[in-house]
């Protein structure tokens, strides 16, 4: 049997945990940038085209966008926590870049991110339920 779970475990074994962190860092960074570009443009509409701003806000208030917002918040948190890990390793503890010691820090980065994210996610889920 080789399901997605087996494939994932094999992938981690072959590439290492650090590579998972690398992929997550790029994914969360690019995702946040995509939203950032749209968000700067739609916010600038308060000056250039106020009606357009209200259209954008109406869209952001829809359920699919509010669910996306919860993932956006996770991306911003994870990218920041993992970024701090990268900076700390580069500047103070380059020995931690070793594959085996790196594993623990990758898992801890995820745990810290989820712990920071969960209260925010709960409040945002509540916001969705309140408004629908």
């Amino acid at each position: 049997m080789s399901g997605p779970s087996t494939a994932f475990k094999g992938y981690i074994k072959y590439r290492g945990y650090g590579h998972v962190a690398f992929l997550l860092h790029r994914l969360t960074g690019l995702g946040t940038l995509l939203f950032l570009l749209i968000h700067i443009i739609d916010t600038s509409f308060v000056y250039f085209w106020p009606e357009g701003y209200m259209h954008a806000i109406a869209l952001y208030r829809s359920t699919p966008f509010m669910i996306g917002e919860i993932f956006l918040v996770f991306s911003v948190i994870y990218h920041g926590v993992n970024g701090l890990r990268i900076i700390y390793f580069d500047m103070f503890r380059p020995d931690l870049w070793e594959r085996e010691t790196g594993k623990r820090s990758v898992i801890w980065t995820l745990i810290i991110s989820i712990v920071l994210w969960l209260p925010a996610a709960l409040i945002m889920v509540r916001n969705i339920l309140v408004h629908h």
């Binding site: 911003v76 948190i77 900076i87 500047m91 925010a120 409040i123």
Partner: peptide, 24 residues
């Protein structure tokens, strides 16, 4: 690295206020 450190307070406080506490 430098902008990343600065963005931790800047972006996180922004997200906390607008997305979580105030709400869209």
């Amino acid at each position: 690295r430098y902008s990343g450190i600065l963005l931790i307070p800047l972006a996180w406080i922004h997200v906390l206020i607008k997305d979580v506490l105030v709400g869209v």
